[in-house]
């Protein structure tokens, strides 16, 4: 029987980790001091943004093993074996996710810096709660700071997306 590994060792302070990003298997070489946000950006996933680097703004939100999480607080080596969805994995300009469309249609995108994080948080919310009340939306998005919009149109966008997704009979699972 194959023995399950329960550890990794760094070579000169660098861990080689395997992980899934947006459904693709990837191997990252990450320094022991590096956080997931920096590693993702270094490997080209620029959709995760650095707004504070202290876990307080939510711009770096990614879906980490099924839940929205703060990539700036996750030591990169701990992403070994993880499944990650970044905004790039949710939808693209050619083929956007209904949430991305809803944010555009509701006028919820101003500078856009916080939007990838906010959409990823919303995505999970709608996965677990397809018909959230306004209060539930407000509670779920409280870690994604935005200074441009006052959140009014973003909440509207999440409601609209929820409706749209319910119409499709399912929430797209990533």
């Amino acid at each position: 029987m194959k023995k399950k590994t329960t550890g990794l060792e760094a070579v000169n302070g660098v861990f080689e980790i395997s992980l899934g990003v947006n459904g693709a298997k990837r191997t990252f070489a990450v320094k022991n001091t590096e956080f997931l946000l920096d590693a993702l950006r270094r490997y080209g996933y620029k959709g995760a943004k650095k707004g504070c680097d202290t876990g307080d703004c939510g711009s770096c939100t990614v879906i980490f093993n099924g839940k929205p999480a703060l990539a700036c607080l996750i030591p990169a080596f701990t992403a070994h074996g993880a499944a990650i969805t970044t905004i790039e994995g949710l939808g693209t300009v050619r083929d956007p996710h209904p949430l991305q469309e809803a944010f555009v249609e509701a006028g919820a995108v101003q500078c856009g810096f916080c939007i990838p994080g906010m959409i990823l948080s919303s995505k999970h919310l709608l996965d677990v709660n397809p018909e959230p009340s306004e209060e539930e939306i407000k509670k779920y998005l409280d870690g994604n700071l935005c200074r441009c919009t006052g959140y009014v149109k973003q909440i509207k966008a999440v409601k609209a997306a929820a409706k749209k997704l319910r119409g499709k009979g399912r929430v797209s699972g990533v």
């Binding site: 329960t6 080596f77 074996g81």
Partner: peptide, 16 residues
């Protein structure tokens, strides 16, 4: 964190 050499993710409290 620059002294970290090992990343362990044990599956039992005893191993941890």
């Amino acid at each position: 964190m620059n002294h970290i050499k090992y990343y362990s993710f044990p599956e039992t409290p005893g191993a941890a």
